[in-house]
Amino acid sequence: MEHYTMNLTLKVWRQKNSQDKGRFETYEVKNISSEMSFLEMFDVLNEQLIAEGKDPIAFDHDCREGICGMCSMYINGRPHGPWQHNTVCQLHMRAYKDGDTIVVEPWRAKAFPVIKDLVVDRSAFDRIIQAGGYISVNTGNAVDANAIPIEKEKADAAFAAAACIGCGACVAACKNSSAMLFLSAKVSHLALLPQGEPERKTRVLNMVAQMDKEGFGSCTFTEACEAVCPKGISVTNISRLNKEYLVAGLTEDKR
């Protein structure tokens, strides 16, 4: 595709801190290269704001390679912008044309409160993982990696679920602000593998309990989450999570 430059109008959510009410500000950016990433375009805008003596826009980013799960912008009505299976950092400006207006908002969910501008607090996800998204391994010599046989299909399905980067786009897209796609990916990843077996039941019960405590909604299978997931995590995982939860909930004794 041929290189071109563009002038854009940006409507960006600005919020000083978690107490501030926040509002949209309109910015003009000029001579943006079609080869830039969306975040590089924001870097240009921030340089411009700093030069004008204004507060630059706070936004989350880390690897800029589409694998860390830090970037989190809701662009023109879609988490991570218009491209499929993509994070904001891998969204390139060739997705836009000269004169476009782009509205950029933070993830919206009570469980993800805004810290500043486009940065939201996603530590709820960390607490869900802490509630059971792990396996306990006793210390000692490392076990041979091939000692436990695993069917190829299950290993592949577990790997596909483990691809979740925990960005929270699923929550941002869901009409119920449900974290079920995230949670189901984490539960499926371990439920499919023999290493996850010993803590299988307590894991799913504790993680769902933590998810409810954090204030996420319930799943109504609208599948908006799968459509925006940068890693293409399937909603089939949510069915698996339901099965894991029902089996554990119906068979675990009172505690």
């Binding site: 409507k11 949209f24 809701y74 023109n76 009505g77 879609r78 509205v103 908002e105 919206r108 969910a109 009570k110 469980a111 897209a173 009409k175 119920n176 602000s177 449900s178 204030g215 996420f216 909604g217 319930s218 109504t220 609208t222 599948e223 908006a224 799968e226 459509a227 925006v228």
Partner: peptide, 19 residues
Amino acid sequence: NRAKRNIGYKVPMGSKGSR
């Protein structure tokens, strides 16, 4: 479920990706 998002989006998702 609706109350889980107290501030809505300026540009809503609509039915993108779902029926």
